[in-house]
């Protein structure tokens, strides 16, 4: 019988994490890698909230998630700024092309 508990949430989060990891490691588009990072962070957030609801009984997990969301936004802003610069310098967004150590 289908039920909903901590385990179900954790399995879903593990799946999201694995998808994010795959996207991070294989995509060559820099923005795609950023999307992978967001997936991984979301999986972590889901874990924290599920634990805070089903295990701990306090809202500490929610607070941690709040910080993660804020930091993810900040990280995305910096990352996009870097990508714009990267694109301006190399005229591509393929991360594999960025292996030369010169401007």
């Amino acid at each position: 019988m289908l039920t909903v508990g901590l385990t179900q949430y954790l399995v879903l989060a593990a799946f999201l994490f694995c998808c994010g990891l795959f996207v991070m490691t294989t995509k060559r588009n820099a923005v795609g890698i950023l999307i992978g990072v967001e997936l991984v962070l979301n999986a972590a957030c889901l874990n924290l909230v599920a634990f805070s609801r089903y295990r701990v009984g306090t809202i500490d997990g929610q607070i941690a998630t709040l910080f993660i969301i804020v930091l993810a936004a900040a990280e995305a802003a910096v990352a996009i700024a870097i990508f714009v610069n990267y694109y301006r310098t190399l005229a591509t967004i393929d991360v594999d092309k960025g292996d030369e150590l010169r401007g």
Binding site: N42, I69, V70, A76, I80
Partner: peptide, 28 residues
């Protein structure tokens, strides 16, 4: 029952970060 987190996720992630990402895609 983490209502606040849900709406913050929608505001910051879907309404902010994701738009930034799409914007970044369009620029690059």
């Amino acid at each position: 029952s983490a209502n606040f987190l849900a709406v913050i996720q929608l505001v910051v992630y879907a309404g902010g970060t994701l738009i930034l990402i799409v914007f970044g895609i369009m620029v690059t």
